[in-house]
Amino acid sequence: MRSPEEHFVQLEIIIQRHAAALEAEVRALQADDETANWPPDWKRYYNWRFSQIFASVKIFRNWGADAAAWKLLPSRVYPNRGNQKD
């Protein structure tokens, strides 16, 4: 049996490895589809839809809720309405 510290070291390695792979795939898709060149309305919808997809994955939703409950997430302000459907 591992100690809690050893467990969390391994847990962090696992999460970082998968986060890096996920980011690389998303960035590659964005580059392929040239999302940086999309018009502002498309980008606004993209932000809204991306957030919706991310939050719909149970593990991210659960972990995000835990992080929010522990007040580990930075406060965010979206004054430009950047994450809206329309």
Score class of each variant (00 low, 15 high):
Met1Tyr: 13
Arg2Ser: 10
Arg2Cys: 07
Arg2Lys: 05
Ser3His: 02
Pro4Phe: 02
Pro4Arg: 05
Pro4Glu: 04
Glu5Met: 09
Glu5His: 03
Glu5Leu: 08
Glu6Ala: 03
Glu6Cys: 02
Phe8Asn: 12
Val9Leu: 02
Val9Lys: 03
Gln10Lys: 00
Gln10Ile: 05
Gln10Pro: 01
Leu11Trp: 07
Leu11Pro: 10
Glu12Ile: 04
Ile13Trp: 15
Ile14Thr: 09
Ile15Ala: 14
Gln16Gly: 11
Gln16Pro: 15
Arg17His: 12
His18Gln: 07
Leu22Thr: 01
Leu22His: 00
Glu23Arg: 13
Ala24Trp: 06
Glu25His: 08
Glu25Ser: 12
Glu25Gly: 11
Arg27Asp: 12
Ala28Asn: 05
Ala28Tyr: 09
Ala28Gly: 13
Gln30Tyr: 09
Gln30His: 13
Ala31Gly: 14
Asp32Asn: 10
Asp33Arg: 06
Asp33Pro: 02
Ala36Ile: 13
Asn37Ile: 05
Asn37Ala: 14
Trp38Pro: 03
Trp38Gln: 05
Pro40Thr: 11
Pro40Trp: 13
Trp42Thr: 09
Lys43Ser: 11
Lys43Tyr: 06
Lys43Gly: 05
Arg44Gly: 11
Arg44Cys: 04
Tyr45Ser: 04
Tyr45Val: 02
Tyr46Met: 02
Asn47Asp: 06
Trp48Thr: 10
Trp48Phe: 13
Phe50Thr: 00
Phe50Arg: 06
Phe50Gly: 01
Phe50Trp: 07
Ser51Leu: 06
Gln52Arg: 15
Gln52Gly: 11
Gln52Ala: 06
Gln52Ile: 00
Ile53Tyr: 12
Ile53Pro: 08
Phe54His: 08
Phe54Val: 01
Phe54Ile: 00
Ala55Ile: 03
Ala55Leu: 14
Ser56Cys: 10
Val57Asp: 08
Phe60His: 05
Asn62Met: 12
Asn62Tyr: 04
Asn62Lys: 05
Asn62Asp: 15
Trp63Gln: 13
Trp63Ala: 15
Gly64Ser: 05
Ala65Ser: 05
Ala65Lys: 04
Asp66Asn: 08
Asp66Ala: 06
Ala67Pro: 00
Ala67Ser: 01
Ala67Met: 02
Ala68Phe: 00
Ala68Pro: 04
Ala69Cys: 08
Ala69Pro: 07
Trp70Gly: 08
Leu72Asn: 04
Leu72Lys: 01
Leu73Pro: 00
Leu73Ile: 01
Pro74Gly: 07
Ser75Phe: 00
Ser75Val: 03
Val77Ile: 14
Asn80Leu: 14
Asn80His: 10
Arg81Leu: 08
Gly82Arg: 14
Asn83Phe: 07
Asn83Gln: 12
Asn83Val: 01
Gln84Gly: 07
Gln84Asn: 14
Gln84Lys: 11
Lys85Ile: 10
Asp86Leu: 12
